[in-house]
Design a protein around this nucleic acid. Sequence first.
DNA 1: GCTACTGTACCGGCTGGACGGTACAGTAGC
DNA 2: GCTACTGTACCGTCCAGCCGGTACAGTAGC
Lengths: 182, 182
Amino acid sequence: MICTMSAGRAPERSTRDRLLDAFEGLLVSGGSRAATLDAVAAAAEVSKGGLLYHFHSKDELVEGMLTRLQEQGDADVEKMRSAPQGPVDFYLETSVDSGSDFDRALIAAARVAQENDPRGSAALAALRDAWFGVLSEHVGDEALARTIQLIGDGLYFDDTTGLADPNALSHVRDVLRRLGAL
Amino acid sequence: MICTMSAGRAPERSTRDRLLDAFEGLLVSGGSRAATLDAVAAAAEVSKGGLLYHFHSKDELVEGMLTRLQEQGDADVEKMRSAPQGPVDFYLETSVDSGSDFDRALIAAARVAQENDPRGSAALAALRDAWFGVLSEHVGDEALARTIQLIGDGLYFDDTTGLADPNALSHVRDVLRRLGAL
DNA sequence: GCTACTGTACCGGCTGGACGGTACAGTAGC
DNA sequence: GCTACTGTACCGTCCAGCCGGTACAGTAGC
């Protein structure tokens, strides 16, 4: 009745998903100020009325984005756990892989969290806990796991503020090899 | 709540500085959306007319904030260079010292940079380069210096998204001791 | 096979309020 | 009389949310 497309993943991107994509993209590239309803609708090539048909308020748009993030996050944790190069390298690699859908969703959530929205912080905290669990379990050292996580956060931060250093990842790999974490 | 008044500061803070403090405080705690001219004036206990007497536009407010940041940054780099505990520990310590004026100014600049303002990115990039210079010079290892910087960025990121872990700093110290960087 | 109706998806104009900025008259203290 | 404000009134723009309307697919009744 209300939810018509939650069961199967259709290959064609639904309007709803396109709207969430557009919302995330605008949040990432221009901050929350740029992510107006008009801008989101235009970016998704939908009218404003069409947007508000799917999401009755901006708040619902945030809610929808965060829910989708959680789903993507669960999948990511699974991939991390079973990554052939090991969880640590997988984690670091995906921390600078700013092109992926998941990464964009993460940065968008960080923007929302910065606006004092507790839902954004909660969603990020849940993900961090899950990552830390895998990291900690794999390296068997809480201090090292937390440090690796901080490095990942630093890679994010640089990316989101336009300060990214292309050599950063190889430097980090070098240092982590010395610590026996890679 | 946010601590706007800290003991030990001179009681004679100029209206101009109070306005910049308020602007930074609002940017940090609520993002750029919360930092409206009305809100800044109210937080500084100045009328809107009074605000616009000092800063003729919001743009000038940003400019003033970034200029003050650069001054604070120059002083910080000096302090870092001559810190008794060494530049690395000083850098990490100040990365989590979210109560300081300088830290608030930094986070505020990051917010501005995220809104696609090149002046914000430039100010942060200049500071990062200065820090990296001191770090790199001290540890004599580019990869390690960059990694330490990323850890510092990670500590910031966590702080700004409300994900701060109180044990993070001691964990990092532990790991850096293993690397001979502390 | 036609009518009447329902639900889904979407369009685009509109409004009220917030926000950036202007203008200016007044005033307290040096 | 100058600096450093206060307070009020106002303007244009932007934005969230609302609403009336369109198109169309399905379907129930006759």
